[in-house]
Amino acid sequence: MSSVIDEVPRPSEKSGFGFFESSATRSLIGGLSVAVAWSIVAALTAFWPDKPESDWVYTGGFAIACGALALALALAAFAGVRFVAFQRLQRVAPWLFALGLFLAAWEAVTAKLGLLPLPFFPPPQAIVEVVIDDWGRLAEGIFASARLLATGYFLGAALGFVTGVAIGWSRLAGYWIHPVLRFIGPLPATAWLPLAFFVFPSSFSASIFLIALATGFPVTVLTWSGVACVKSAYYDIARTLGATQRFLVLKVAIPAAMPHVFVGLFMGLGNSFAVLVVAEMLGVKAGLGWYLQWAQGWAAYANMYAALLLMAFLCSGLITLLFRFRDRLLSWQKGLVRW
């Protein structure tokens, strides 16, 4: 609708407001207001003294970092006038602006006014401090978590996929596996935790088993339903063209089931995060979950926030990665379903 209206010359353009209506100008104004918001964070942190008797080491550093970011944003805003690539920042500008305001408010009520009780609510610079001073341990945690998650997830996804195809394809496999799946599948993987740590030789292998179990169930069920939903006409076509059983499974059933399989993979990934953190908190002596638990034991709440933030980045990053993978593999669905 707006495109129709845009084609009609509007009186405002004649009255000099046209300057504000070009996308370059709008992008410049948006970018500069974001830069201003971050300058406010920097100024507020630097020039408003911390509450007496607090010892935040990185207050100055945090102010400089915010100031540098503000400067970079201002430069990007000006670059956007000439280079279209920088105008893409316009889309995230409202979010960056809101984030700046949030940080400013957080800084004010913690380090400056001390309205929120310590140590539960540390100021932003305390989290920066943790990331800088304790990066070695955090990096180790990320690496350990990623290793555990990747091993368990791939194992579970692969086994779930194969099982799902087997149940969907073979009557015999369905007869034997389906009841087991119905009985054991709905049990939360964490219920196995005490048993797993007792049965498996190491807490690492026990956790892999739990993560694989949590991933495997949804992948199995959705792969199975995907294979079961394949139109029989697809098989008829392939059979009249001389397809073998192997071809029917690999080239007809599996590709047709892939959209379902991905739903299972997404559900499995969500489940695996939950089990990973629980396993690390209760048994494994490494990883971000363990770090969280350890930080809580020392009442190091800034460390907890840092670990939570990193965990959020890790999880959302992996989900994004899986989306990218799906978009690549199932690009044929574009135009068939709402993408």
């Binding site: 139109k231 697809y234 008829d236 076509i237 009249t240 001389g242 397809a243 071809f247 080239k251 044929w332």
Partner: peptide, 27 residues
């Protein structure tokens, strides 16, 4: 003996080329 059905039943995940290639690929 190949059948052409009322519904074209092309595989949506394959391009036209690889749909046509189906029989050759299967054999």
């Amino acid at each position: 003996r190949v059948v052409v059905f009322q519904d074209p039943t092309l595989y949506p995940w394959r391009t036209v080329w690889s749909n046509v290639a189906l029989g050759l690929e299967a054999r």
